[in-house]
Design a protein around this nucleic acid. Sequence first.
DNA 1: GTGAAAGCGCTAACAT
DNA 2: ATGTTAGCGCTTTCAC
Lengths: 360, 360
Amino acid sequence: MAADRGADGRRPATIKDVAAAAGVGIATVSRVFSGTGSVSPATRERVLAAARGLDYRPSALGRGLKLRSSGGIGLIVPDVTDPFCADLVAGVLACARTFGEHVILDTAHGDPAREAEIVDRLVEQRMDGVIAVPAGERAAWRTAAGIGAGVVFADRVPPGVRDVPAVLADDRAGVRTLTEYLVGLGHRRIAFLGAAPAGPATATAAGAVAEVRERAFRDTLAALGLTADEDLIVAGRHERDSAYAAAAGLLQRRGDVTAVLAAGHLLGEAAVLVARELDLRVPADVSIAMVDDVPWAELCDPPLTTVARPGHDIGYRACEVLLRDRARRTRGGPVLLPAELVVRGSCGPPRGGRSPGRPA
Amino acid sequence: MAADRGADGRRPATIKDVAAAAGVGIATVSRVFSGTGSVSPATRERVLAAARGLDYRPSALGRGLKLRSSGGIGLIVPDVTDPFCADLVAGVLACARTFGEHVILDTAHGDPAREAEIVDRLVEQRMDGVIAVPAGERAAWRTAAGIGAGVVFADRVPPGVRDVPAVLADDRAGVRTLTEYLVGLGHRRIAFLGAAPAGPATATAAGAVAEVRERAFRDTLAALGLTADEDLIVAGRHERDSAYAAAAGLLQRRGDVTAVLAAGHLLGEAAVLVARELDLRVPADVSIAMVDDVPWAELCDPPLTTVARPGHDIGYRACEVLLRDRARRTRGGPVLLPAELVVRGSCGPPRGGRSPGRPA
DNA sequence: GTGAAAGCGCTAACAT
DNA sequence: ATGTTAGCGCTTTCAC
């Protein structure tokens, strides 16, 4: 019976309880709460009062079942702990809020299998759509697209995937700008500290991103009439140890590099640490710049020059694309958001070359 | 008709479609997918095959409605962008995953009203429980508790709230250790850079936290037979500008302080920046230490000594308390996780006092 | 403007 | 081991 429901009862009050308490039909209660149809002000008030008394909350489960959608979106990122991802998440949250949608967050940690699991789960939850900073390749995303839930990629796109909307930072332009800046300062022996994907070279989305940056570096050099020294293009995996090893190897082997361009904040961190370890002064001995304008860039001494990828905006836009532009989503290729060069103190003119080959 | 469902049809296949395709009853399909009851291996295989063919995914909505729960938990933090919060979120995610629960994340940005909205939404979603780093005071959390969904607080507790399980860092011990360390180094004029809550003093959870740290500082000093210089205990709001102003004011006014203990990473950042601005060498002129072991602490020059609050663990444990210990949740007060002193290079013996009152 | 009734996709008795 | 049935809490025709 209805008596044991509500504020003091054990189980939450249902629409039926409210209807009974207000002396109306359940359809009327539904109308009041869903804003559909018309109810007389008097009845509405009675219903509201009854609901208040019972501490009634419409069940999203019931509504969702009827409506075939949960009214939420899924968000998959590699790692919330990464400042860029965190920004992106914040952007999605901000936008989702304006649409009244909630967001289910999960992290794939670069593992395609795990990503697939998450997508599965999201599909079961009947989300209105999913936003992903993808790890895996094309195959994993087939099923998601097939299921009908809208997908939009953020920050990167799995290689081989077409016709899925995406919102990306203009990495190419970012790296180009940074390279030009370094060259403009007078640097000729610029090292590129890139990221090597864990798995098979270009199978992962992260790998594709790394490639884009590296190519942008080469191309810019070429466009400037310079030729890239292959020995100065090294790659560490995007983990602390590996990045550090790559940076240390580079800086020790080639005492003649005058600038290093790190293709990510973990790589940049490694460069900074290694330079400090080697007692190289920045920017007097080496200039350092990196992609990703994380908070510590400003706290470094000297503060680091970076390319800021707009994480928050990417997330926000991705969510807009998903929620607002449902219909016209596919048209016109990915949305490209500008990556801005943030000049601080870590880059200066080259010092004319340190003595090469100093022993470790 | 069932023909237009499934892989190529528009709408997702339902349990009924699968049952029809496999030539069994819907209950059997349910049994196969929910793992309940027993099905003959043969039938199970047929069902699975049919499901595969139709690209069937059980609807969490249908199941949830029946089971009166969505199989997920809600998570409310002030700001994903804060490294500590991000850690905490990661911890919750990691634990939730082991329970097969998804998590709905939202951010309240310290606004009790917004927090209340979020809680409302979570209740409508019929979450299995919610974990919150709370902003608001007692009142806002009444309704949530009343609704029956389990709540566990993480990192801090709204003032006045009892009998709600919580997982906290042992801030008191952390600040005490740090203070003792500073005193042990020989410091006597230690400034405490604390956080002033935006709203009415002790009405917010954040305010309560700030108070605990400040008190721990005073108490430790007292226990060591020293008396706190009130002029050296200052508070900035936990925002960049305000924190900077507070730090600048302090360091300029009192040229004689030999160490500053920042009660949070934003405050610590401010202290570092101000010291640099004032050309104070660390730790030669001032020692600096702070609560919160954020990534940049290590990249600072010199690396910063901190008290590490275990964000990840707090999140993980909070989730465990929520999901595993449902029954015996309340007993025994809050879970206290140790905050560890991480000694790096930013603290040293006092320099014997700088010349006080140097002009700005 | 309002109520009655038919499901939405699933699970859990209860039969068989 | 498997099928039938009755809801879970809601929205939505369709009558009135």
